[in-house]
């Protein structure tokens, strides 16, 4: 049993028939072919799958694709525009805000949410904002630096 959904992802409209139980993360990765968002757990506690759904950061492993019919989704693949990295991507690169890179797409999407709501966050606000994203490599320090560096770049 499948149902048809239409979703705008990174500016492109897709229509697919999906099983109701298909998770958004699997829809993005397996059906649409966007493998940037990752799966790091099944309890929605690691944040590696974070994408933007209708302008808000969500864990795409805890949403069914069918719930997103008609929605607008932004994934890590949609962050760079016209061959130019998003300032958050640049900041993660410059500040060595990643090592193995597995959590990075989720970290970047959560950072976007943090800065969208608070363009000049304090260290504490940044760390609080990253609560839902696990990183096992960096100890978070360079990630915090990256978020601060991105905040400093004008034109949020």
């Amino acid at each position: 049993m499948t149902e048809s959904i239409t979703v705008n992802i990174n500016g492109t409209t897709y229509s697919h028939d999906v099983e109701p139980r298909l998770l958004l993360i699997h829809y993005l990765r397996e059906v649409v072919g966007l493998t940037g968002p990752h799966i790091g757990c099944e309890t929605s506690l690691c944040g590696a799958c974070t994408v933007e759904l209708n302008g808000k950061a969500v864990k795409s492993c805890a949403v069914f694709a069918i719930q997103c019919d008609g929605a607008k989704i932004l994934t890590i693949e949609g962050m760079a525009a016209n061959g130019k990295l998003h300032k958050i991507q640049e900041a993660f690169w410059n500040e060595h805000g990643l090592q193995c890179g597995f959590c990075t797409p989720g970290m970047i999407m959560t950072t976007k949410q943090i800065l969208d709501r608070n363009p000049n966050p304090t260290d504490q606000e940044i760390r609080h904002g990253l609560e839902g994203n696990l990183c096992r490599c960096t100890g978070y320090q360079h990630i915090v630096n990256a978020v601060k560096a991105a905040a400093k770049v004008a034109g949020a």
Binding site: K56, A57, V58, T110, I114, G132
Partner: peptide, 9 residues
């Protein structure tokens, strides 16, 4: 409650 993403949903 939870974290940013959880509070959004």
């Amino acid at each position: 409650i939870g974290d940013v993403q959880v509070r959004n949903m």
